[in-house]
Simulated scan of single mutants.
Amino acid sequence: MSTLEEHVDVGVPVDKAWDSLHRMENFPRFLEGVRDARTEAGGRARLDIEAGGRAREVEAEVSDRAKERVMEWQTRGVPDLAGSFSLQPIDQNHTRVQARLEYDPGTVRDAFGGPRGFAQATAIERLVRSDLEHFKEYVEHGR
């Protein structure tokens, strides 16, 4: 498994960032390739994803540690992905959003195509960084 950690500082209070992160239906506004996202009973989520020219539905289990401001998720089935978002207040009006992604490069390649090896890791890193920047825009400006 490979692990990637990235963060972005956003200009909103931690409560606003936390509430925005939990609006699963808005994930397509800031997560590249997510066409639709919805919550289901029992802490499950479904995401319709298009990546590498391939469309796929991904089911994930989502759990919250609300007091710690941590949301963890794990896909069910292929691709095998796990991760978390954790939020830390910087001050009254700023929050650090930390994203952690655990993935098997071969499984991601099989599921979505794309480059191999180092090029794949670099592409995934760019995508996560870009998604965090899009979240920043979304939470600060509603775009």
Results as ranks from 00 to 15, higher is better:
2 S>W: 02
3 T>V: 10
4 L>D: 00
4 L>Y: 01
5 E>I: 10
11 G>M: 04
12 V>A: 11
12 V>C: 10
13 P>N: 13
14 V>P: 03
16 K>T: 10
16 K>Y: 02
19 D>S: 13
20 S>H: 09
21 L>Y: 07
21 L>E: 08
22 H>I: 00
23 R>D: 13
23 R>N: 09
24 M>Y: 07
26 N>P: 00
26 N>E: 10
26 N>M: 05
27 F>D: 07
34 V>E: 01
34 V>N: 04
34 V>Q: 04
37 A>W: 02
38 R>A: 12
38 R>E: 11
40 E>F: 07
41 A>R: 13
42 G>Y: 13
43 G>P: 06
44 R>V: 05
44 R>H: 15
45 A>E: 12
47 L>D: 06
48 D>V: 06
50 E>S: 13
51 A>I: 00
53 G>W: 10
55 A>G: 15
55 A>K: 15
56 R>V: 08
58 V>Y: 15
58 V>L: 15
59 E>I: 15
62 V>K: 12
64 D>W: 12
64 D>L: 14
66 A>S: 11
67 K>W: 01
68 E>P: 09
69 R>W: 08
70 V>A: 11
70 V>I: 15
72 E>Q: 14
72 E>L: 11
73 W>A: 04
73 W>T: 02
74 Q>H: 14
75 T>K: 10
76 R>D: 01
77 G>T: 07
77 G>Y: 09
79 P>W: 08
84 S>Y: 08
85 F>D: 03
85 F>A: 05
88 Q>N: 11
89 P>F: 03
91 D>P: 06
91 D>C: 07
95 T>Y: 11
95 T>N: 14
95 T>K: 13
96 R>M: 03
97 V>D: 07
97 V>Y: 12
98 Q>K: 14
98 Q>R: 15
99 A>K: 01
99 A>P: 00
101 L>T: 10
102 E>R: 15
103 Y>T: 06
103 Y>V: 05
104 D>Q: 13
108 V>K: 07
109 R>I: 00
111 A>W: 04
112 F>E: 04
112 F>V: 02
113 G>F: 05
114 G>D: 03
116 R>I: 00
117 G>D: 01
119 A>K: 03
119 A>F: 04
122 T>F: 05
124 I>E: 12
125 E>P: 03
126 R>L: 08
126 R>F: 07
127 L>M: 14
130 S>P: 01
131 D>V: 01
136 K>E: 05
137 E>V: 00
140 E>C: 08
140 E>S: 09
141 H>P: 01
141 H>A: 10
